[in-house]
C-alpha cells in the first residue's frame, strides 16, 4: 500500500508503530534519530512520515521544519507523535509544519484515522 517512515528512538514504540502499520499492509522504513530519518526521506520515495518529537540530537520539530523546507520532501505528510501532551506542544508541532498530531500513548483507532486521512489526502493530490 503505502511507504511509511517511522522516526522513533524508543525500540518498543518503534515496534508498535511498525506493527500497526504492517498490520494494515503498509511498508515500514525506520530511523532511530532525526538525522538518519532525514537521510532516508531524501533518497526514498515516501507516502508518510511518523515523527517522534523527542529524539536524541535534532528533535522532531526541527526535522519536520527541514523536511517542509525541502521541495523534494515538502509534500510528504508528517504526523507528529509525542508524549508531550500539552496544548502548546500541539501548537508547536503545527508551527513546525506537521500535518497531524498524535499524543502518546497512541490509540490505534486515532492512529489509523490520522494515517488514513493523510494517505487519502496525498493520494488525492
Amino acid at each position: 500500500m503505502a511507504r511509511v517512515l517511522v522516526i522513533e528512538d524508543n525500540p518498543a514504540n518503534l515496534r508498535l508503530a511498525s506493527l500497526l502499520l504492517c498490520n494494515v499492509g503498509h511498508e515500514v522504513l525506520a530511523a532511530v534519530d532525526a538525522e538518519s530519518g532525514l537521510a532516508i526521506a531524501r533518497c526514498e520515495r515516501l507516502d508518510l512520515i511518523l515523527m517522534d518529537i523527542q529524539l536524541p540530537g535534532m528533535d522532531g520539530l526541527a526535522a519536520t521544519a527541514l523536511l517542509k523546507q525541502n521541495s523534494a520532501t515538502v509534500d510528504i505528510p508528517v504526523i507528529a507523535l509525542t508524549a508531550m501532551a500539552r496544548k502548546e506542544d500541539q501548537e508547536k508541532s503545527e508551527l513546525a509544519g506537521c500535518d497531524a498530531y498524535i499524543a502518546k500513548p497512541l490509540r490505534y483507532r486515532e492512529f489509523y484515522a490520522a494515517v488514513d486521512s493523510l494517505l487519502g489526502r496525498s493520494v488525492a493530490r
Binding site: 514504540n13 508524549a83 502518546k104 500513548p105
Partner: peptide, 23 residues
C-alpha cells in the same frame, strides 16, 4: 509525565491492539 507516557505508549498501544484482536 512525558517520561512516563513513553513506556505507557508501548504498554497501552500493544495491549489494546492485542486485546482487540489486531494480532
Amino acid at each position: 509525565s512525558h517520561e512516563l507516557r513513553t513506556p505507557l505508549n508501548a504498554i497501552i498501544g500493544f495491549s489494546e491492539a492485542r486485546k482487540d484482536g489486531l494480532m
